[in-house]
């Protein structure tokens, strides 16, 4: 009963807020009335997961939200599980979702009845970077070594990554195209699993985000070969960029938050403000520099437009990778 009432109340609030669309005074009025669910579009232990959990803990520690934030992993089917879930949560003011590039790629690849345009953009926190990694026991030190080794394997080279058609597989097909290689792509549940399997010797190379390999890298168990960034990363000053080596391969991963369609504007304002404060926090700023992330804060309509531009870009990337395979 109460559930229905609050639902109606929030609808009424939403309607009145829509009337007074430009009244930011509403922002401070709305507060979550129960714990907020933070859906994560990936499995446990990967880059997206770690980051989402970091956000959650900073929010809790700095008291940026009046209610606890509960992270929930829904990584199945390259994030399709999470996308479907968010679609079903239409009008819910207590769900936000931590996204990655599979926000575009998954609905592009399979028809799961989700149009990301309908989601409410909240905030982009950072752009994550990609690095080519091999096991530290291998004889590969340079990009040339790498290309030669892949060629010599005759199509047996195992590249581990997250789901097919996701970021890692796009970067892999970029490599295949650029160097005319043939690589066997093995999909895993999450970036953490991928990193572990590289160190365990079950796959030959990965394109993990720096944060996913950093632990193994500092322990001397994995080796970066080249980065897919415009400039060198502070954490790996000796690792060249692909561009430096004469190959125009640059790819990044957005780390953003979206909310279900039809979230009340005052709730949107609440979460936007929460992430603004998060963006300004010292922990987050330190983390980005240590983990080679580019903090790049963006909100509202500008973020919505960015999503659409990126979706176009990924549509052509996907086409390229499908032709390649």
């Amino acid at each position: 009963m109460t559930l229905k009432l609050t639902r109606r109340l929030s609808l009424a609030l939403a309607a009145s807020a829509a009337l007074a669309a430009t009244a930011p005074a509403f922002a401070s009025d709305w507060k979550p009335s129960k714990p907020v669910e933070m859906v994560i579009m990936a499995g446990q232990g990967g880059g997206a997961d770690r980051l989402a959990r970091l956000f959650q803990s900073i929010i809790q520690k700095e008291n940026l939200a009046s209610m606890p934030i509960l992270p929930v992993n829904k990584g199945g089917g390259s994030g399709a599980e999470a996308l479907r879930y968010l679609k079903d949560k239409e009008g819910d003011n207590h769900v936000i979702m931590a996204t990655l590039n599979s926000l575009y790629t998954t609905p592009l690849r399979t028809d799961i009845g989700v149009n990301i345009e309908e989601f409410t953009p909240i905030a982009r926190m950072a752009l994550d970077t990609f690095v080519l990694w091999v096991n530290a026991d291998s004889d590969i030190y340079t990009l040339d070594d790498y290309v030669a080794a892949v060629r010599a394997s005759g199509g047996q080279w195992k590249m581990g990554g997250t789901g097919t058609g996701q970021e890692d597989s796009l970067v892999t097909s970029m490599l295949e195209n650029e160097f005319g290689l043939e690589i066997t792509y093995v999909p895993f549940k999450g970036g953490g699993d991928v990193a572990k399997n590289l160190v365990g010797g079950h796959i030959d190379s990965t394109v993990n985000n720096p944060s996913e390999q950093l632990g193994f890298f500092t322990a001397g168990k994995s080796r970066p070969i080249a980065t897919f960034t415009p400039t060198r990363l502070a954490a790996f000053p000796d690792t060249p960029t692909m561009t430096e080596l004469g190959h125009e391969l640059v790819y990044d991963m957005q780390r953003s938050f979206v909310a279900p369609a039809g979230m009340a504007p005052e709730a949107v304002a609440y979460y936007t403000e929460m992430f603004e404060k998060l963006n300004a926090s010292e922990e987050w700023q330190t983390y980005t520099s240590e983990k080679s992330l580019a903090p790049d804060f963006l909100t509202g309509d500008a973020l919505g437009e960015y999503f659409l531009v990126e979706r176009e870009k990924h549509a052509s990337l996907l086409e390229m990778s499908e032709q390649g395979s």
């Binding site: 446990q44 232990g45 997961d49 770690r50 959990r53 970091l54 959650q56 803990s57 900073i58 809790q60 520690k61 992270p71 992993n73 953490g192 699993d193 990193a195 572990k196 160190v199 950093l214 632990g215 193994f216 500092t218 322990a219 168990k221 922990e283």
Partner: peptide, 27 residues
């Protein structure tokens, strides 16, 4: 030891550790 949680609960513990400034992993 590896920074990879074996269960949903340990994933939460991992989040807490990151916040306390601890880096789970081989080191």
């Amino acid at each position: 030891t590896l920074g990879i949680p074996g269960s949903p609960t340990t994933a939460l513990l991992l989040g807490g550790m990151v916040m306390w400034g601890l880096v789970p992993g081989p080191m």
